[in-house]
Design a protein around this nucleic acid. Structure first.
Lengths: 315, 315
DNA sequence: TTGAAACGATACCTTGAAGGTATTGATGGC
DNA sequence: GCCATCAATACCTTCAAGGTATCGTTTCAA
């Protein structure tokens, strides 16, 4: 049995006349007659009673008509769903984020993606950079978010956003009195650094910036993530350099200060990481959204745009 | 798209290798390659990623695999159900019964039919004989039950059972004292007759029997059905001749007496009526059950058989 | 490094079944 | 009794599914 048989059967059942059904199907009458005979023979069931007026469904034919229509609908749905999946509009995207990645940019990006592709289920996994790389290679995730990356042969990156660094400082700290802090003012102040884990990471960036400003930072504490870092600032452990997006996190006693001489160096990239050989349309769609997000965000920041996600209001 | 494409796709998806899949399908590798390409092209979706190791499903392919398996199952079910319908094992049978037909034989027959064909839904309609004929001609019912029939050109009958006639009499009536009543003893006793409606009917049979016994019955009352007739006997309206199956109906004050000289004439047939041109397998199945029921009932009465329906115990 | 094996893709041929034309057979209306 | 209207049949054509041979890649082992 073939889908053609079903199409023909439905036409004959609806027209109750082989000639008319053949016309509707744009074929001539004899082949249609044969196809129906063939279908009946294959099923071993008489689907029509032939009358001089035309073709009349038997009870079994009546049932088969329902079934045939149902099969057609199921097939149609299947192709449509598969096509949507092939266009990256339907499916699942496994995304890895790092500890404090839930703050700021990433949720906004994911929300924008969900807006564009509502039928793609995004599943979040919290992973360190090393875990992300491993998971990408094992295909357990499709994209990972990261701040500092050494180029890897089999993985590619796409820049998501560039954020200036801010100083997180306790309100009782001398530097809290300054409206703008210059980089060299940080010397001698004990500093909380993060994250621990695989290099290169954010720590290396901070170290290099301090070095360029002509001093070596006094390390107060190394912690796993930005949230813990800011918490230690609240506790008076010292100062801490953080990406701007961390400012959505308000802890009592912590204030954020811009770095007066923040050059383009004093910025940190947020990128997403994916398999270079991954052809998945959902990944392509996601990367497309990332690019759109990036340009909208850059121009939008200047023009006050991109409020449709409902996030900008609170930031 | 064809069901063949689905079959091929499933094989390739399961084997993850076109060569092995082709072997499983008993075709050679190149046509299978082409069929898969064709399917992908038609859907406009890449279902597999070709690796040097074989064929690996994409996410869309993964989805389509589920869909394809589902379609196959749906098609399989559809053919199976249609085949059962074609064998009269699945469907619906519209049956007409007359007023007091719910008593005795008919329910037992219908139960036997349900036992044999549990997936055929029998729908009961209460109709007079004239209504049954009309409904048969309009195909609103498939079989009707009746007691007396004039032969009709387009309708055929099948004998269901032959029942002796009994006398229903009030316990205070003089005839109630007799253990066996002979036919001519009925003369002069007012008699309740049924049913009213289209001739020939049960009344004609009773009249002829009386005539043969040499008297004309004194009609006390004509009523619509046996139940009403027996009810009037309970109320003292007179005596009433009824088919044996009516004895399942026990009303206070009514006793039933066999007719001593009950010849083969003093029997009444119960037949079922159907369209002579009806080829429906459900009707054939039903008539087959009727025949089996009839012979089992005749021999079973003697041998005490046919208790599997659970009815015999109470009768 | 090279050769063999395994994989899918391509080229080209064969065949079977779907589709077309012409016609037949049967039934009902005028 | 003739014609119109069905479906069915006979016979031919064509197109696509299937077969054989071969190619281009990649991987693995000698």
């Amino acid at each position: 049995m073939d889908l053609r048989h079903l199409r023909y059967f439905i036409a004959v059942a609806e027209e109750e006349n082989i000639g008319r059904a053949a016309a509707r199907l744009h074929i001539s009458q004899p082949p249609l007659t044969r196809q129906i005979q063939q279908l009946e023979e294959e099923l071993g069931v008489r689907l029509f009673t032939r009358t001089p007026k035309g073709m009349e469904l038997t009870q079994a034919g009546e049932l088969f008509l329902e079934e045939a229509r149902n099969i057609r609908a199921v097939v149609e749905q299947a192709t449509e769903r598969t096509q949507r999946a092939g266009q990256g509009k339907l499916g699942r995207l496994d995304v890895a984020i790092f500890g404090s990645g839930i703050l700021g940019t990433i949720p906004r990006l994911l929300l924008a993606f969900r807006n564009d592709y509502p039928e793609v289920k995004t599943v979040l996994h919290t992973m360190t950079k090393a875990e992300q790389i491993e998971a990408l290679r094992q295909r357990r995730i499709t994209v990972g978010f990261n701040r500092m990356l050494a180029p890897l042969p089999d993985l590619a990156t796409e820049l998501v956003a560039t954020e200036p660094l801010l100083l997180a400082v306790n309100e009782n700290h001398p530097l809290a009195r300054e409206r703008h802090v210059s980089f060299r003012m940080l010397a001698e102040h004990p500093m909380v650094l993060f994250p621990t884990g695989a290099r290169p990471n954010f720590i290396d960036k901070v170290m290099r910036l301090c070095e360029e400003a002509g001093f070596v930072p006094k390390v107060s504490q190394e912690v796993g993530d930005a949230v813990t870092g800011v918490a230690l600032v609240a506790g008076g452990f010292g100062i801490c350099l953080v990406p701007e997006s961390v400012t959505v996190l308000t802890l009592p006693g912590v204030v954020f200060r811009p770095l007066q001489d923040a050059s383009s160096n004093a910025h940190i990239d947020l990128s997403c990481l994916y398999r270079a050989d991954d052809q998945s349309p959902i990944l392509s769609a996601f990367l497309e959204t990332v690019r759109a997000f990036r340009s909208a965000h850059i121009s939008g920041k200047a023009a006050g745009m991109r409020s449709e996600t409902g996030w900008d209001a609170g930031i």
